[in-house]
């Protein structure tokens, strides 16, 4: 994924003024959603994709937190990229990510304590989410702030839709509900058995595996 950095740098010097959402910039957002998805194609961020996807509500909060952290850390790193000493750049990136993650965690503790109790440890683990640091190192260190924000948005959304899909199937089949709304009881199938496997991490592996299969067979991506 670091290959794109060099290409875009060359392009940037040529284009003097381009529209806010030019074709090139749209690609920053759309690429990670499908062709270059951080979870299904790059296989990053699997740890949290397993841990928080038992129910949709915490997954949604987690997605918002990750999008927030990626976008703002990309923005901040991109703004200070010319001042960051090369030898300590990883530490600087980590400091920025850790600060943002701590902020998110404190906000959650203040305004949504039940979710903080569910997600507490995993929000902290966004710091070690490889997607975030990967984007900083591969993109934000070499691109302008606006482009970096778009790139962060794309990667964050790419992560979000995958874990939300996983969470949808896990909650539906594991707990028989969607957003804690009992679906099967509502449609008169109160006896529909819950699949405990889906509540376990194994369920996440299975759903994720199927998702990767479908996605890769559609895009024709093969690992080299």
């Amino acid at each position: 994924m670091s290959t794109e950095t060099i290409e875009q740098k060359a392009e940037e010097t040529v284009i003097a003024t381009e529209p806010l959402l030019s074709k090139r910039r749209k690609k920053f957002v759309t690429d990670p959603l499908n062709d270059d998805n951080p979870v299904t194609v790059q296989v990053l961020g699997i740890c949290s994709a397993l841990a928080v996807t038992v129910k949709i509500e915490p997954t949604l909060i987690m997605s918002i937190a990750v999008v927030f952290v990626i976008v703002f850390s990309n923005l901040i790193i991109s703004m200070i990229r010319n001042f960051v000493p090369n030898r300590v750049r990883i530490i600087v990136q980590l400091a920025v990510i850790a600060t943002l993650v701590t902020l998110v965690s404190e906000l959650l503790k203040a305004y949504n304590y039940p979710m903080y109790k569910v997600l507490g440890a995993f929000v902290g683990l966004i710091i070690t989410n490889c997607i975030v640091m990967g984007r900083l190192e591969a993109f934000a260190m070499g691109n302008k702030p606006y482009d970096s924000v778009l790139d962060g948005l794309g990667s964050g959304m790419g992560y979000a839709w995958v874990i939300l899909t996983v969470a949808f199937f896990r909650e539906l089949l594991g707990s028989g509900s969607v957003f804690d709304f009992k679906v099967f009881e509502a449609i008169g199938l109160a006896n529909f058995p819950n699949n405990s496997l889906m509540v376990d991490s194994i369920g996440a592996f299975m759903v994720l595996g199927i998702l990767i299969w479908i996605q890769r067979s559609r895009t024709g991506y093969v690992e080299h």
């Binding site: 404190e106 203040a110 305004y111 949504n112 304590y113």
Partner: peptide, 9 residues
């Protein structure tokens, strides 16, 4: 955020 957190707890 401390006051809001204490309230939540």
């Amino acid at each position: 955020l401390r006051p809001a957190q204490l309230k939540s707890i």
